[in-house]
């Protein structure tokens, strides 16, 4: 086997166990893993930023293709750096203003379209079924009615400037019940997702336990447990 693959397996198995050790308690291995993680992730983001964003979107077009218009965002970017000098930090506001205006402008029509109109469209449906000339009330219509009630009562729960008493209180209570069912259902649904992730991780760990990888997982696991034991014994002696 290629040495880099083997080394990779050992490193991956080790780091996985380091992080898992947090479940037992905060400890040296977790701290090591945590700080390595911060460092590597920051290093990774910097590299990505340089090669995947700044080079193709800024450096090459500006200095290679002389798109001078890009001097404007460059200036806006540099203005942010005025925050280093607290006294002279106001120019950074110009950049923030630009970012905020852009974001706010984008948000309004898209929220109306994607959230409001489409969601209303989904709720505004006939409450009965008609096939030919036959009008009937099916289970589907009942479900639609529940959606209708659910949407309205949840909206009522979110009324802030009206006191929740009387009929409003009852309706907003119904809204809360809908919310609770929704939260419970999502919790249950998500449990599945999280278990899948753990499955994926354990799958890798068992893979690294094989002879092909020179039993990386079990060896490292034993070493970590040994360290815990030694530490435990030593600290006990210390306290005595």
């Amino acid at each position: 086997m290629d040495l880099s693959i083997l080394l990779g397996a050992w490193v991956a198995a080790g780091l996985t166990l380091f992080i898992f050790s947090f479940l037992y308690k905060d400890n040296f291995f977790f701290k090591l893993g945590e700080h390595l993680y911060i460092g590597v992730s920051v290093g990774y983001s910097i590299t990505l930023l340089i090669f995947k964003f700044m080079r193709p979107k800024w450096f090459t077009p500006l200095f290679g293709e002389h798109q001078w218009i890009l001097l404007i965002p460059t200036l806006l970017g540099i203005l942010i750096l005025t925050r280093f000098i607290p006294r002279l930090s106001w120019p950074s506001r110009l950049t923030f203003a630009f970012i905020f205006g852009f974001g706010a402008g984008l948000t309004i029509p898209r929220s109306i379209s994607g959230y409001i109109l489409q969601q209303i469209q989904g709720t505004v449906i006939p409450m009965i079924t008609k096939e030919g000339t036959q009008i009937s009330y099916t289970f589907r219509d009942f479900s639609n009615l529940l959606v209708f009630i659910g949407v309205l009562t949840v909206l009522i729960y979110f009324f802030f400037s009206v006191e929740h008493k009387g009929a409003i209180n009852i309706l907003s209570r119904i809204g809360i019940l809908f919310l609770m069912i929704s939260f419970g259902a999502s919790f249950g649904y998500t449990a599945m997702a999280r278990m899948s992730l753990l499955f994926g991780r354990c799958y890798d760990l068992t893979l690294f336990s094989s002879k092909r990888y020179y039993y990386a997982t079990p060896i490292l696991l034993c070493l970590i447990i040994l360290c815990f034991l030694i530490h435990h014994v030593l600290s006990k002696k210390h306290s005595v």
């Binding site: 948000t107 309004i108 929220s111 109306i112 959230y115 409001i116 969601q119 209303i120 989904g122 709720t123 479900s143 529940l146 959606v147 209708f148 009630i149 659910g150 949407v151 309205l152 009562t153 949840v154 909206l155 729960y157 979110f158 809204g175 809908f178 919310l179 069912i181 929704s182 259902a185 999502s186």
Partner: peptide, 20 residues
């Protein structure tokens, strides 16, 4: 699809208005 969706839609509508 029904109970969960209704509540989510309510939240979404409120959030969308807040965003606007």
């Amino acid at each position: 699809g029904v109970l969960n969706m209704a509540a989510r839609r309510g939240i979404l509508l409120g959030v969308a208005l807040g965003a606007i």
